[in-house]
Design a protein around this nucleic acid. Structure first.
Lengths: 252, 252
DNA sequence: CAGTGGTCTAGACCACCAG
DNA sequence: TGGTGGTCTAGACCACTGA
């Protein structure tokens, strides 16, 4: 029976395609359970590993989520809308709010594992901040958890010399956050650049964001520039791609 | 021997971690060949499927690429930088250039499978363009191939009524492209909104972009608005995430 | 043509979860 | 406690690649 697998494509792909069609047709709705390995073995007369391959393919597409001891379930996608421009408008942080406020509209946000350290500047960071490689930087690491689900890892880098003695070196940065403190130092951010990439997560990222298989991460590297065009902060973010839509608006 | 797998984690993860460390340490450079299934079986005394699982894990992370009959090779990441703002500045398309020109700096770009059709507006498109659902839209589908590798699928939607009789309904849109033609119609785009998402590709997307396993896609949905704030064009793009960095700049 | 990865079988033991 | 998915073995044939 092995041979070329009925028809044209491999058996496991055929089984996967059938399930995928069922999901898209709404036959299996979000959160609902799919036929398990045993069901597929019986229904299609295949071995265990073949049924597993079919389910693994759907997992790798992020369509489906396996829960040990329970079954395989259809995932759903209800993203957070992150406004790249308005959220960093001066009116936001100028008024003492967090830049995050613009995004979440009353959902339950927790910032955990806040960690402020002083470290040697990594090469790329030093390059962007235009400081000597190995010079000290203040690093603020945070994890954002929305409605119980971690959605974002953030690491903010600022020249240690610049921020020494300010609230930026404290876990709590005070009203308006880091940017308001920078303004008090005469280094108010007036321009931002964000670079967006996407890839599959490392094992560490996958664990810290509690990602299920088949979920990519989006990486945002943001640089804040002051009025003289000098970079004052670099923020490296790792986002659960299944939790976010990024929005950017601009003029022609 | 099965049992709990030496130490703590599953055997295949241990093997994968070892290879991953080797890659990160530069022991296996980009494009270089990794130990194959047979090597891993011998080196670790495991079965075929276990060695395969280890390699599959690295593929799923996008670190590595399997070539049938040849071996498993380390991938590299040399992205195209896509400037979200400058590329759509009026100076670009106003001067008769393609909006693409800003991105590629003399690399070999081919646009293939250009396809212009008239279709019923899909629900979401109709909603954005503020036309009745099922009303006719002009759809321009294209695929962009850079240095022989497909990198982007694009589908542009415009109200059929608006563009009837213009070059927009032709495969070639003339100097300055669609936006220059819209300007001639008195509907010059002045503002853009881009929404960025990321997920694993569908089978179709994976095939048309020739993606290797473990490569996500980025989705950009761009809406162009005219001076009256009316949406004139919606462009749905699918990007090979391993080929792109998106860049956005804006003021505070 | 020798070696590679791709697919497949038919077993096995385990940890976890729900009823 | 019974069923689920997670891991693992020891075989097999295939298509493809590269020398």
């Amino acid at each position: 029976m092995s041979g070329r697998g009925a028809g044209r494509q491999p058996k496991y792909m055929h089984i996967a395609a059938q399930l995928r069609a069922g999901i898209e047709a709404g036959e299996y709705g979000p959160g609902q359970r799919l036929p398990g390995e045993n069901d597929l073995m019986a229904a299609h007369g295949v071995a265990r590993m073949t049924a597993r391959q079919a389910l693994a393919a759907l997992q790798a597409e992020g369509l489906v989520e396996a829960r040990k001891g329970a079954g395989v379930f259809v995932r759903d996608f209800r993203p957070i809308r992150r406004h790249g421009v308005e959220r960093l408008a001066h009116a936001q942080w100028g008024a003492g709010r967090s830049v995050w406020d613009a995004d979440i509209e009353g959902r339950d946000l927790v910032v955990d594992s806040v960690e402020v350290t002083e470290e040697d500047a990594p090469t790329v960071i030093a390059g962007v901040l235009e400081i000597r490689e190995g010079e000290r930087v203040c690093v603020r690491r945070r994890r954002f958890v929305l409605d119980g689900k971690p959605v974002l890892l953030s690491a903010s880098y600022l020249a240690a010399e610049l921020v020494a003695g300010t609230a930026i070196t404290q876990p709590g940065t005070g009203p308006g956050g880091t940017y308001a403190r920078l303004e008090e130092l005469g280094r108010r951010p007036v321009r931002f650049r964000e670079e967006v990439r996407s890839r599959m997560p490392s094992g560490d990222e996958s664990a810290r964001l509690a990602l299920s298989a088949g979920t990519p991460v989006m990486l945002i590297g943001r640089t804040a520039f002051d009025g003289q065009g000098r970079a004052v902060e670099v923020n490296e973010m790792v986002l659960d791609a299944s939790a976010y839509v990024l929005e950017y608006g601009f003029e022609a």
